[in-house]
């Protein structure tokens, strides 16, 4: 796969979308603050967004849901590894092993 120069523009967009929330209140100082209700709602944003990205990645095969695909088996193995062990490498080892094993 090859990308053109617009890839760098994409990086800058993602970079701004990361730098601005991080710096926001630290740079503005106490001149600004966030309402309590907004703070509460925002806590759910990463969970909802990451799930919305990773679930289709794991469940869909050529655009259609397939519950017997190797990626789903690998995902389950990775989730089990995170739940049962504190070893940071194990989810990756378990997930990739199952992915290769089922193919």
């Amino acid at each position: 796969m090859n990308y053109d120069a617009s890839l760098w523009l994409t990086f800058i967009l993602i970079g701004l979308a990361t730098l601005l929330p991080r710096s926001s209140f630290i740079v503005l100082g106490q001149r600004a603050s966030l309402p309590e209700a907004v703070q509460k709602a925002l806590r759910y944003a990463p969970a909802a967004a990451l799930a919305a990205i990773v679930v289709p990645d794991v469940v869909l095969v050529n655009g259609a849901p397939d519950v017997f695909n190797p990626k789903l088996g690998a995902a389950i193995a990775a989730v089990l590894a995170v739940s049962l062990s504190r070893n940071p490498w194990l989810p990756f080892i378990a997930g990739m092993a199952v992915l290769w094993g089922l193919r």
């Binding site: 966030l34 806590r43 967004a49």
Partner: peptide, 17 residues
């Protein structure tokens, strides 16, 4: 998508201000 996954930083940033 990048903005949404980074929204948590608004809260962290507010706490660190």
């Amino acid at each position: 998508t990048a903005l949404v996954v980074n929204l948590r930083f608004l809260i962290f940033s507010a706490a660190l201000a």
